[in-house]
Design a protein around this nucleic acid. Structure first.
Lengths: 225, 225
DNA sequence: GTGACCATCGGGGATGACCCCGGGCCGACC
DNA sequence: GGTCGGCCCGGGGTCATCCCCGATGGTCAC
């Protein structure tokens, strides 16, 4: 984790957090070693600012008014010039939350790291440098279950949420998402309707969804059909 | 395809393409026979320019920053004075793409022709004249599947199945297809659940579907969301 | 062996989805 | 005036969905 990687020029950092005081604190900590080129407290404002300032690293809060951290990531990606993907900024999530859902959502959206706000100033600087150099950085407690979820596949995220499901549950999920009734799924998989119910319940619980319609939508933007 | 249709004055042409060099090339080819009254490299700029210069024909690229060819079509149509529809320009799509989706989208938006950029200068002039005279012009390979897609209905493709539904039924359909429960739809449309049931029943009957899942699938491959 | 997890199935119940029937109000058309 | 269709509601019923509880076996690890 040496911080001297042959990079001469100051790192340019963009700050996204909905609390002005927190941004001021981060700026104070970073100011002497890296350059804070801009900041934003809301998602669309962040996208515009990042595209305009072209920073090396974006420090990104997970919970934001206007769409949250993942929305900023996808927004920047969409707005970034396609012929200039190499210069796209790296994203480092910086959040109070250590909830699995929060971590997974920003990592899946493309963040290269995730540290909690309990981090110290020096560590934060080091984390920013490592992310800028292409490394992935995680707070100690988070690293474990992120690796579990991705089972060793960092570059291609696979799907941690899908991996929570057993083989049978995924099978049932596919049929439900296609619109079959429980009875039809039971007939196709040679099961009783009750077993299908059990699997569907497990899937809904694990994915934190409330009914089969949300499940269909969930499966759709994941192209699981 | 005679080019002398009694038109004495030069044709006035507007050029929309995001590549300046390509616009220069077209201008060079057309310049001696028709008058290029303006050009634009981006959608909103194009709409403003077209409305201001009132050309006879617009040469329109399909892929543009700011919304693409169809956006220009609809933008000009919206901005054009309603009492002067007769003088509205004809649109001729001019694109590198020969993909079905691209062709269909601009034709449905109202373009009167579609030629690929492999066309020669003389042919392009002829195509512009024919479009100005009200003809439809297509590159040979494209003409076939355009006719297939519209199966003879050039002016308004419409959707016969969707037209069976009343306005209220279509409204309910959209909500159901998004996954809302009857109760939620009722709340959003200020109706009783019973009324929602009635409309859903009517929709299912008219479209010959058997449940809301099939309805969701039906709405999806029709892009009604 | 004991526990943990998985797959399979069941009872029972609350709610949603979907259907049948009926009614009333209103505007358009004849 | 009468008729028709769109729109709004209701009662009442069947089946689907989704949850709670429970049970049985199998596999694998410790």
């Amino acid at each position: 984790m040496s911080e001297a990687n042959g990079r001469e020029t100051n790192l340019r950092v963009f700050l996204v957090d909905d609390h002005g005081l927190f941004r001021a604190g981060v700026r104070a900590e970073l100011g002497t070693t890296v350059e804070v080129v801009g900041e934003a407290g809301e998602a669309s404002e962040a996208v515009a600012g990042i595209v305009a300032t072209r920073p090396d690293v974006v420090l990104l809060d997970v919970h934001l008014p206007g769409g949250g951290g993942p929305a900023v990531l996808t927004g920047v990606r969409a707005a970034w010039p396609a012929d200039d993907a190499a210069s796209a900024p790296r994203f480092l999530a910086l959040s109070v939350s250590d909830a699995a859902d929060d971590v997974i959502s920003v990592i899946r959206a493309g963040a290269r790291g995730y540290v909690t706000k309990t981090i110290g100033g020096a560590e934060l600087v080091a984390a920013v440098r490592r992310v800028a150099d292409g490394d992935a950085v995680f707070s100690p407690r988070l690293a474990g279950f992120v690796l579990d979820a991705f089972s060793g596949a960092l570059p291609v995220p696979a799907d941690p949420e899908l991996d929570q499901l057993t083989a049978r549950e995924k099978e049932v999920l596919r049929h439900i998402a296609r619109g079959y009734t429980y009875k039809e799924v039971a007939a196709r998989l040679y099961l009783s309707v009750k077993t299908v119910e059990t699997h569907v319940s497990a899937v809904l619980r694990k994915l934190q969804l409330s009914n089969r319609h949300e499940l269909t939508a969930w499966a759709n933007d994941r192209r699981l059909l």
